[in-house]
Design a protein around this nucleic acid. Structure first.
Lengths: 204, 204
DNA sequence: TACCAGAAAACTAACGATTGTTAGGCCGTT
DNA sequence: AACGGCCTAACAATCGTTAGTTTTCTGGTA
């Protein structure tokens, strides 16, 4: 959003493997998902980076919560970007809803670590940041609900309760992160289409 | 299981409002859901009980993790009890599956705090207890999958992938705990039947 | 009813461990 | 020489838990 952040991102991406800071954030992402934010210590992150003490990390970051905050924003950006692309497309209402659901699920499957922060660990953000986060997330979900509304108006969806339909749809989609793992029996494409179709059939 | 425990339960239930130990467990349940297990200190629990220090709790309990363990088992027992009642009934396959889904959702809605432990906080159990927990939970979900299998064999469900169907169904049902609150616009009965029907229609 | 002994519950202070974070020094590269 | 990256040690705060003491409750005796 700000010039500051944009500058950081450009500088950080000058070498191929990602800046040291990005590496730290990746390590934190995985630990935050597998153990949880509070159960992950700075020394755990340092261990994963093969550093011998949590203090070494502070040459690159300002604090533990900053990592959580950056990951949460990363996830939000990914969901918005995928959704915006769908919203720009010229499709009939139900097709657009289906595309949005598939896009949503694909973000989850391609970013399982960040998704864990987006769905669970965000509550450990500071008060101010937590409010910012939920505001953006609620807006995202509201746009999703708008697509369902359009589908009902269009007549393709017969479900009566719009609010329930949105909660049900997002709940069913988000649950994927609990069991999907890359390299499993079903491909990401298969999981995405099967899930989106199951939700759509459920609302018809 | 042991005489000890049975005696405790009998003694603990002699007064109307529940034993002090039960009150502590209730307070812990709510805090574990709203803040998370690791973010809840013994002093937080004591505060909620209007006690002036975490030490006071140890006249009634052996340790913090015991609270988590008891709540997790409580939740497991509730799910099993509801499922067993359905399994005993003499119903056609799809009706039985539908009844099991409704029963499952109703346990979640009537025990939101315990459900949070069942779905999220259990991972902070000790290694041994965590293994015991997941074993029981997996068995419960396997029985659920059996009902879906029966529905497919019966011909009422047309979904091809049995494993996916089970994961989708449970995921959609479990998501309810994220937004349902007692006293809301929709009654528990409405939410239960609407959700079960949406899932069934999705698998047909 | 008044009393008292024993138990149960709660209070307070302290413990060792772990937490996030800081500061100062060391080493290799530029 | 200067800098970035890492190491080590230490800090204050907070954690679960323990121990010792005091308060409160309970039930039987006078």
């Amino acid at each position: 959003m700000t010039d500051e952040i944009l500058t950081d991102q450009v500088i950080g991406s000058t070498n191929g493997i990602g800046s040291r800071r990005d590496q730290i954030r990746s390590a934190a992402e995985e630990l935050f998902r597998t153990r949880g934010y509070l159960a992950t210590s700075m020394r755990n992150i340092a261990d994963k980076m093969q550093l011998s003490g949590g203090g070494s990390l502070y040459a690159h970051i300002a604090g533990k919560e900053d990592l959580l905050w950056e990951i949460a924003n990363d996830a939000i950006d990914a969901f918005y970007a995928a959704q915006n692309e769908v919203l720009r497309a010229d499709l009939p209402p139900v097709e657009k809803l289906r595309a949005a659901m598939i896009a949503h699920v694909k973000v989850i499957m391609s970013r399982l670590d960040a998704a864990a922060v987006y769905f669970d660990e965000w509550r450990h953000l500071s008060d101010e940041r937590r409010t910012q986060f939920t505001t953006l997330r609620d807006e995202y979900e509201k746009r999703f609900e708008g697509l369902i509304h359009a589908g009902i108006v269009d007549g393709a969806l017969k479900i009566g309760d719009e609010r329930f339909a949105a909660l049900y749809a997002l709940g069913a989609l988000n649950a994927i992160r609990r069991w999907y793992r890359p390299g499993g029996r079903l491909s990401a494409d298969q999981v995405a289409t099967m899930t989106a179709d199951a939700v759509l059939n459920g609302l018809r």
